[in-house]
Design a protein around this nucleic acid. Structure first.
Lengths: 205, 205
DNA sequence: GTCTATAAGAAGATAGAC
DNA sequence: GTCTATCTTCTTATAGAC
């Protein structure tokens, strides 16, 4: 990884731990293994480093959204994946979703950074809401909609069903972000949540 | 309100909007209507102001917890309140909970401040989790438990039921904190959530 | 592209008069 | 308790050599 990228990487780590204002250009330089003034050959200011992180993230989000919606617009393909869905598979789906969000280094650091900077301006607020509210609800609504179409789950309001599936996951995620030692407890609640979700929305027979 | 208290009040407002590190003692003094050095006659440092806010909040939390648990240990009294509970009453209960958390000035500012400072140290993380995760789940579990005892709702896992009731409310609250213009949308989802919750957990006959 | 030296300004805090 | 003046330190950023 070249220096310019390593700066973004170390800055993201520090921003996610201490918040933008509590990270000094000196800290970033130190982590990268250069002196602070050398940073300015790569970025014109500390703010420019932050902006570059947001830009890169937006770029990754778009790629991700595209790949997801491509799958989503091919119901015949997705439907097959969920053809033999049962409670254990649903638990696994939720667990995987949760563990990916929780442990993927880039995802985690970006989410924590955004948590600390979300009130700074309207744009950051939108980025946060889109990534951790609107997009997950929309994507999982699509997935759950497939299960409804197949008669595996029953509801007349898929968006609210998606809210019921996702919001406990989201909340448990925020607990683990601030208290990583509660991960085990969170995972246990996760599994109970999904089994209960399946009982509530499943065809009960 | 005396100066010492006004300092806490203005500081809380500023901390909740911009985060501790982005608020300068000068800003606080200006809002209070005095010069920065005068602050130091009331608090020995900027950090001491922050600590005093946390202390005051912990104090209010304790009072609140006591009054709630007193009600909670008198089931005969609480049961009466929820004797004639139906879906519309449940919607109102959720709405009131949501609107109180959302608009109560002190609650809102403290929640937003804690959101921005939650990763600073373990103590703040605990305060956040206790106030916005553990306590609500425990209190609402108690309330919903009363409804289960009366046969109005059905489940064999009240804690997960409380998770299903509260986590959408919590998530919608965080959306409104960062994008207040989405309040109407959030309230609509809230109502749909609770009506759906009632259908899922209600005695279906 | 990295360094040393340093400018320029911001921010927390203190001294001492009133 | 509040003020003006000031100190000290920290922090971002630039200049210019290598």
């Amino acid at each position: 990884m070249d220096t310019k990228q390593r700066i973004l990487d170390e800055a993201l780590t520090l921003f996610s731990e201490k918040g933008y204002a509590n990270v000094y250009v000196n800290d970033i330089a130190e982590k990268v293994g250069i002196k602070a003034p050398s940073l300015y050959k790569h970025y014109k200011s500390k703010q420019a480093i932050f902006d570059a992180i947001i830009d890169e993230m937006n770029h990754r989000f778009e790629e991700q959204a595209q790949s997801l919606s491509i799958d989503g617009t091919d119901p015949s393909k997705d439907a097959k994946v969920y053809e033999h869905m049962d409670e254990d598979h649903l638990v696994q789906l939720g667990n995987n979703l949760f563990l990916y969000y929780l442990h993927d280094s880039y995802t985690k650091r970006f989410r924590k950074m955004l948590t600390l900077e979300q009130f700074k301006d309207k744009e950051l607020a939108k980025v946060y809401s889109r990534q951790y509210f609107d997009n997950p609800l929309s994507y999982q609504g699509m997935l759950l909609g497939l299960l409804v179409a197949q008669g595996l789950l029953v509801t007349d309001d898929v968006p609210i069903m998606a809210l019921h599936f996702y919001s406990p996951i989201y909340m448990l995620l925020t607990v683990c972000d601030r208290e990583p030692e509660r991960e085990k407890e969170a995972l246990e609640m996760m599994e109970k949540h999904i089994r209960q979700f399946d009982k509530l929305y499943g065809r009960n027979f």
